[in-house]
Amino acid sequence: MKILILNGESLNGNSLEKLSSYLKQDLQKNNFEVEEILLKDKIIADCQGCFKCWIKTPGICIIDDYGRETAVKVINSDIIVFLTPIVFGSYSYQLKKALDRLIPLISPYFTEIKGETHHKKRYKSYPSILAIAMNEAKNEIQNKIFKELVERNSINFHSHHFKAEVLLFDDKSIREKIEKIVNNFSQKVGVQNE
């Protein structure tokens, strides 16, 4: 299985290096092919909201930068992992600038999913989403928002599975927690892929 880690570490914020390193170790233990993109090191322009990726260059963003490359890698992965500091319950700017540029991967046409309007698939299958946010202090409200957001993304992104967790930067048992999250999620996705 191919795993793509989208590391949304902020420019001047806490490092997510330790978290990402544990994640990679655990994923590689499961014999997964793992690639990480440290988004703050990449030139990814903000989505212009022009919809030309739907009506002019179908499936391809008109901005020729690393945002395009990210979309190619995402659609060819089995799992995408979001790593982010929690920002008001949502994603960091660094992660979101990449996510906004994934719109070319879906169709402009509307469809109904569980009584709600969403966009149709462009591709046959989409990666599952594992999202891990880091916070400096306990904040149940923001944890709940984050989990809700990832669930909403999984619907719009036609992901078979999703899992969202929020951990604290000073959590002493972070190593064990990551191992557990990775094992449970990869088992779930593995069963699906079999």
Binding site: G49, V87, F88, S90, S92, K96, D100, L149, N153
Partner: peptide, 13 residues
């Protein structure tokens, strides 16, 4: 606008 179920990246920034 709503972008990918939340705020547009630049608004988060």
């Amino acid at each position: 606008p709503l972008y990918v179920d939340t705020l547009p990246a630049k608004v988060i920034k």
